[in-house]
Write a protein that binds this DNA or RNA. Sequence first.
RNA 1: GCGGCGGUGGCGGAAUCGGUAGACGCGAUGCCCUCAAAAGGCAUUGUCCGCAAGGGCGUGUGGGUUCGAGUCCCACCCGCCGCACCA
Length: 851
Amino acid sequence: MSELRYDPHEIESRWQRVWADERTWEVRNEGVTPQPRSELRGAGVGPGAQGREDDSLPPKSYVLEMLPYPSGEPHIGHLKKYAVGDAIAHFHRRTGHRVLHPMGYDAFGLPAENHAIKTGEHPRDSTAASIASFQRQFRSWGISIDWSRELGTHEPTYYRWTQWIFLQLLHAGLAYRRDAAVNWCPNDQTVLANEQVIEGCCERCGAVVEARQLEQWFLRITDYAERLLRDLDTIDWPEHVKTMQRNWIGRSEGAEVNFHCAELGVDYPVFTTRPDTLFGATFFVMAPEHPDVLRLAEGTAEEAKVREYVNHALTEGNEERGDVEKPKTGVPLGRTVVNPVNGEQIPMFVADYVLMEYGTGAIMAVPGHDERDHDFARAHGLPIRRVIQDSEDPAAEDEQQGLPYAGDGPLINSHPDFDGMHNREALTEIVHWLDREGKGHASINYRLRDWLISRQRYWGCPIPVIYCETCGAVPVPEEDLPVQLPDIEDYAPQGRSPLASAEDWVQTRCPSCDGVARRETDTMDTFVDSSWYFLRYCDPRNEMEAWDPSALREWMPVDQYIGGVEHAILHLMYARFFCKALADLGHLEFQEPFKALFTQGMITKDGAKMSKSKGNVVSPSSIVERYGADTARCNILFIGPPDQDADWSEGGVEGVHRFLGRLWRLAVETSERVGEVGIDSGSFAEGQPSGADLELLRKAHWAIDKIGGDLRRFAFNTAIAAVMELLNECQRLRESASVQAQSFALSSAASLLFPFAPHLSSEVYELLTGQRVWEQPWPQADPAMLESERYELVCQVNGKLRDRVQAPSDASEQELLELCRNAPNVLAHLDGREVVKEVVVPGKLVNIVAR
RNA sequence: GCGGCGGUGGCGGAAUCGGUAGACGCGAUGCCCUCAAAAGGCAUUGUCCGCAAGGGCGUGUGGGUUCGAGUCCCACCCGCCGCACCA
């Protein structure tokens, strides 16, 4: 027996062949709306589901991992993501759902292009090689993917529809072009993505990045700020991800207030969250980028200084300028504006602590109640006025001490109508007053910016727009899509998109007037490609439209989305925005694409992030080669809760490998005994099991019950631990329990382990039952087997554990009390004491309080 | 500064509703099998006192609520993540 050795490679390749040959994991579109889904979190669909009388389909479940970016080979993070996703997909299938579990590649992007610049190899070729490697490995991991729906975002059959979506947004006014400041590398002569700017320098050459004004395409995501925020309440996502999105959207409630500049006859609106402090506004500040700054200073004594200050501010890097510790600099503009609430003329300044991108690019400064304004006022000798009393410290009234004060309290030094009123109440009243007087109104401001999607890159989806001298920017007609990415000679950036060098491609005719015209040479941000791929999976081969609405009705929304937290903001926000916009345009019937989200933690090595430069990379292929995919997958799920970071250790893998080997050996041994003894599967029904058999069966049902619950809450680590416990029990009782009981316990273990170790589980299950485990419904625990006639009663004295006694399950509280009082060690602790109180928790414990 | 998450043996972690703290695994120690090794199996393993029975202590710190607190409340310390001159 001990000669038997678990050979994962032989087992795994056999079952992988079966799944590939039989296309086991493919699902068809039935073209009908399925019945409302049964509650996934509730009990699974039992064996009864097999013999369903009506012809309605089982409920659907769409399980999706974020699509991989194909670069080189998959890393261990991929293994974890798909191990989690596959476990969910299998569990849903076996609890009676039709599961859509597709795969694709986010294939456009920079690394392939940089590789092309270096080697001249076409990005299409290096990407294809990488995709092939991903496909090979996903198959070797045994992930249950519907390969018939595979797609790549770089394929014209896909990006044709990315372009189509762009046109829909354009027609709806949700895509627009405007001048924008972008990151420009003077050395590489190219625009850089924000994430390519490392501490103000170009990631590739290290040159200091400059700001440059360029005409760029934007998507109007800011129109959706409120809905993107509000609808977070309707989805089942981790709280920290929702929080990140809320922070990113950055909603602030307040008011817009007009400050009139009499000299120029212009109103300057400001946004403030604290209109209650308006009476404390003693000066006014504009951002250096504000278009009116130079015009205001013109002709004043300050003009030269203002020019100098603005020039300096504009050339200063974002890093430097954004430093909170930096002293507050700025210069006067030589002009004043009127504070609308009290008519005071207050001086205007330009200062770089005011940002053009937020609010109106100008602020009212309240040094008494804002730290930054306070700093500026102190540095420039400006008046500081307290207008809110500190309720905690009323003595500080009129004193400069305790300022700036950001707390609440009654208004002072403001206006007879408001003085004495609590500031929160005054805030509302003052906004009403401004509104009545036409000097301002309640307003909401967001931190969220419109999405800049233009990239001066080759390896991306071309923006389907043509520029005509007479007609301007003209959208490419839908029937001319896709605008195919042309082949080019030189991928190196030359101060414009590499596509601009494809003259034959760039020169075209205007779709509107047929005159000479030129194509847009920028491509789209790759986040555009990945903002709708989950829709295409529902109908991936459709050549007539992006999707058939009935296909989306059948599968969307995604029931369980799985991916890394690094996409918590960008990808997840963009995809949500796309769905809302497309729904508004009548193309979708739902608002949120991802009903539930799970974010898996990182796998580290010795506590550090794995990276080539650190040389601590553990490649999935090396683990699979050494231990097999089942061990690799189980270990990654066993080391800890999957949403937390976990460290990869060799010892841990060995342990899990031993466990799988033990399961296999016991199963082989048991199946041989079955061969000798002969098994009658009905044998338990005849006689009541007892002794070791009963113990073993109880453990099996306990595991069935526990693991079902664990899987619903993503507790894969404890689920695997429970299978280990069951196996330990099989091992312990292997001499005393019957072959039938052993066989039931082991096949149950295999069945329960299937979502994590599909190959070995299939092998063991077939060995013991002759059946295919994935075709069996998820096991159901027998409630009768979860109870026993006796249990261990915990006996406490004054809350401390003093003894344990066997108690009948149906014992009354009185009887339990008696048992506890008479427990030997309880008697010893009660000796000479007076019993004050007795607490009985049936099924658990008795606590006797004594003095 | 604002927001979120976390702190449990030598290590990864478990304890799902306020009810036996440390499941499961790693590591360690002893033993069995073996000529030997590998593989496998059995046993012990929070800590201190004790020959044992048993007892003391123990979930970042200090308080509180409770018959009973890792779990709830208050104050604090430490770590991680996100946002941040956002008006």
